[in-house]
Amino acid sequence: MIDEIRFTLNNSEVAITCDPLKRLLDVLREDFGLFGTKEACGEGECGACSVLMNGRLITTCMVPVGAVKGKEIMTIEGLRETERGKTIIEAFADGGAVQCGFCIPGMVVAAESLLSRNAKPTEDEIRLGIAGNLCRCTGYDLIVESIKLASERGEGLW
């Protein structure tokens, strides 16, 4: 079935006509050219494809685009334009969180999701918050530190 699906993407109203079972991940990357959302497993395990749906963290490789009808989707491309997004990105850069970078856009989105629920997370809360985002390069320590740094620098933003 082909259907017109309307939703909000990075604060703009968009519509797409396609099979509602197409993965949101493919729609973002291939129909909207938003390549910041990555695919590393395609089965919900790694978090590289993370975005926010109505403010909540989801992995887009498991979501059919039909399920986002009427929803608000925020990808890294939208997030990087916000003060919060910039704060996290800068903290990641300064804190040494970035190595190969493939997991990082998803991590930034997960950090935003975490901080929006808990502006001053402890180390344990940060580790739990990014537990669905696999990183093979960093061993996570500097990512955790960088999220702490973002939380300190972004006092009042969340």
């Binding site: 099979d19 079972l21 197409k22 993965r23 493919d26 291939e30 695919e39 395609g42 089965e43 919900g44 490789c61 498991m62 979501v63 059919p64 399920a67």
Partner: peptide, 16 residues
């Protein structure tokens, strides 16, 4: 969809 989309996936760019 967390069971179904994974079970019936057919790869990048292909509709499950």
């Amino acid at each position: 969809g967390t069971d179904l989309m994974v079970m019936h996936r057919r790869g990048t760019g292909v509709v499950p």
